[in-house]
Computed example of a mutant assay.
Amino acid sequence: MRSDFDLGRFGLVSGSSLPSAQLTYETHGELDDEGSNCILLPSYYTGTSSSYEPWIGPGRLFDPAEWFIVAVNLFGNGVSTSPSRAHPEIAGAAFPDVDIADNVIAQHRLLTHLGVKRIRLIAGWSMGALQAYEWAARYPGLVDAILPIAGAARCSPHNFVFLEGVKAALLADPTFRQGRYITPPVQGLRAFGTVYAGWAYSQEFFRHGTYRELGYASVDSVIQGWAADHEQEDANDLLAMLGTWQRADVGKHHPGGFEGAMGDITARAIVMPGSTDLYFPQADSEREVELLQDGELRPLVSELGHIAGRPGVREAETAQIRSAVQELLRN
């Protein structure tokens, strides 16, 4: 069941604030008496707490009969406080910059409210991985294990440039009007999705026709599908989350910088970059794992590109993730 956690006027690390802030979440299962059987699933770009449902249930990655599963929505995703769902003071183009750290601080307040004393595992795909790293660095004594999938501990320069490209496609629509649009900037939203489609999958995905396995009849249907999906999004919400992504850096607020933050992570980590991911490449994860106290690099072997590991896409990738989950929870 989806619920709202009221944060009041929530102060941001930037010094700004979110008035009447709400963090929206879903729970599955029951918290044990020790408050120690929590699984946290932070949402990802254009995803919601419900997007993790393919991982939750009997026989799936996380069984509610055993675990207290909390799936939480990012600020800006249109479910938690967002440009499209905000106090009039910060609605639309007036929405302030929100960092990954802000999301994690708010989530920490939520879990404290729910009675959680220990997090057995934080598993997150894409932007969910950014949050998993931030959690482990900011609250090392609370987190037993993390499973970052197709993500990283910070947004790399190349990743930043990719995001600038999709953003530029949206901003070029004159209907956008610097975020003060009267009607949705449909042309810009579709252009955003079209550009994104070329980055979301690998070259092999298109070369080998793997798109047919995901229900696309042709390359053009991939393009049209992504354009149509993004046409349904709120433009300011997309840009708010995109900014959160671009500013991501686990060392941004740590006195020891990036290396110090990574070195302070005590949680057991299995890091699963997509083997053909174009914007969270395996090479970045290799360098990050070297900085962890107890980290293992375990590439997610797939030709799906970045989409490898997204909940509910394909069993071949889910099986690899399941093996890592079982190992982390067993230990």
Results as ranks from 00 to 15, higher is better:
M1T: 11
F5D: 02
G11F: 06
G11D: 13
L12H: 07
V13E: 15
S20E: 15
Q22C: 12
Y25N: 02
Y25E: 06
T27Q: 05
H28T: 08
H28A: 14
E34Q: 13
G35Q: 01
G35C: 07
S36E: 06
L41D: 00
S43P: 01
S51P: 06
S51V: 02
Y52E: 04
W55P: 08
G57H: 05
G57E: 08
W67M: 13
F68S: 04
A71L: 09
L74M: 13
F75R: 01
G76P: 01
G76V: 04
N77F: 06
V79G: 07
S80W: 08
A86C: 04
A86K: 01
H87C: 07
I90Q: 06
I90H: 09
I90L: 11
F95H: 01
P96I: 10
D97W: 04
V98D: 03
D99H: 12
D99I: 06
A101L: 14
D102I: 04
H108K: 11
H108Q: 12
L110S: 01
L110N: 06
H113S: 14
V116Q: 12
K117F: 12
L121H: 02
A123Y: 03
S126D: 03
A129H: 00
L130E: 08
Q131L: 07
Q131P: 03
A132K: 01
A132C: 13
Y133T: 01
R138P: 05
Y139K: 07
P140F: 01
L142V: 06
P148Q: 04
I149A: 02
G151Q: 00
A152G: 10
A153N: 04
H158L: 14
V161C: 11
V161K: 02
V166Y: 13
K167I: 09
A169Y: 00
L170C: 06
L171C: 11
D173A: 02
P174C: 10
Y181G: 10
P184F: 09
P185D: 05
V186T: 12
V186D: 11
V186A: 13
G188F: 03
L189G: 13
L189P: 10
V195F: 09
Y196H: 11
A197S: 15
W199C: 13
W199E: 12
A200D: 11
Q203G: 13
Q203P: 07
F205C: 08
F206D: 06
R207M: 14
R207E: 15
G209S: 07
E213L: 14
L214E: 13
A217F: 09
S218E: 03
V219T: 07
S221E: 14
V222Y: 06
A227C: 07
A227T: 08
H230E: 12
E231A: 15
E233N: 13
D234M: 06
M241Q: 12
M241K: 00
Q246P: 06
D249N: 15
K252R: 15
A261G: 10
G263F: 06
G263L: 08
T266A: 14
R268N: 12
A269G: 05
I270W: 01
I270G: 02
M272H: 02
P273V: 03
S275Q: 04
T276I: 00
T276S: 12
P281G: 00
D284C: 09
S285Y: 00
E286S: 14
R287S: 13
V289C: 02
E296M: 08
E296D: 08
L297C: 05
L297N: 02
L300R: 00
G305N: 09
A308M: 04
P311N: 03
I321F: 02
S323F: 09
E327K: 10
L328C: 00
L328P: 07
R330S: 15
